[in-house]
Computed example of a mutant assay.
Amino acid sequence: MKAKTIIGGIFSIIVLGMSFQAFAQSKATPGIAMTQVVQAARIKQGENSGELTRREARKLRRKQQKVQRMKWKAKEDGRVTAKERKKIRKAQKKNSRRIYRKKHNGAIK
């Protein structure tokens, strides 16, 4: 009976550790993830309202995908360094400016 309790305790610790690690990795870049979601919504809204042409929206989405790949690459080793985070945030800010400019350039769908 005691062996089962010990094995159960070890198993619980392993499962808990794995779930914590997964949680930590998913929460490593919450600000970056939220910015990606907001920018995708801005692109979709611009396309729906006619502020963005289909071509403009497609190009902006490609830029968003590039940032997402940067994020995935940064997370490959399980940790996002300050330098990687800064590089990703810089790319996001650049994309934000692109979205704004394209939405306000007066082009009609």
Rank of each mutant, 00 (worst) to 15 (best):
G17W: 00
P30R: 07
I99M: 04
R58M: 11
E76D: 13
V38M: 10
G46P: 03
S19K: 00
V15G: 04
G106M: 11
M1K: 09
R54V: 06
R97W: 04
R79V: 11
T53M: 09
K4I: 07
I14Q: 00
I7C: 04
S19G: 02
I10Q: 01
Q45P: 01
F23C: 03
K103T: 04
F20H: 07
K59M: 12
Q25P: 03
K87I: 08
K86M: 11
K44N: 05
K102P: 02
T81G: 09
G106W: 13
L16Q: 03
Q64P: 04
R89L: 10
N48I: 10
S12I: 10
E51Q: 13
M34K: 07
T29A: 14
Q64V: 05
V80I: 15
G8Y: 03
M1P: 07
R61K: 15
K2S: 05
K93S: 12
R61Y: 15
Q21P: 00
A24Q: 15
E84P: 03
A3R: 12
R89N: 11
V67C: 08
L16T: 09
A107T: 14
A24K: 15
Q25K: 14
K103L: 03
E84C: 07
R85Q: 14
E56M: 01
G31L: 10
K86V: 07
R98A: 14
G9Y: 10
N95P: 01
I32R: 02
M34T: 05
S19H: 00
R98D: 15
M18H: 07
A40R: 05
K86P: 02
M70P: 02
Q92C: 01
T35F: 00
R62I: 03
K75Y: 02
R54Q: 15
L52N: 06
Q25H: 13
N95Y: 03
A91W: 00
T5K: 12
K59D: 13
K27P: 01
G78T: 00
S12H: 02
K87H: 12
R97T: 11
R55W: 12
G50K: 11
K103C: 03
Q36A: 06
A74C: 12
K103N: 04
K94G: 05
H104A: 08
H104T: 11
A91Y: 00
K83V: 09
I13E: 05
R85Y: 09
I10F: 08
G46F: 01
R97K: 13
A107C: 08
I6C: 00
S19T: 13
Q39L: 14
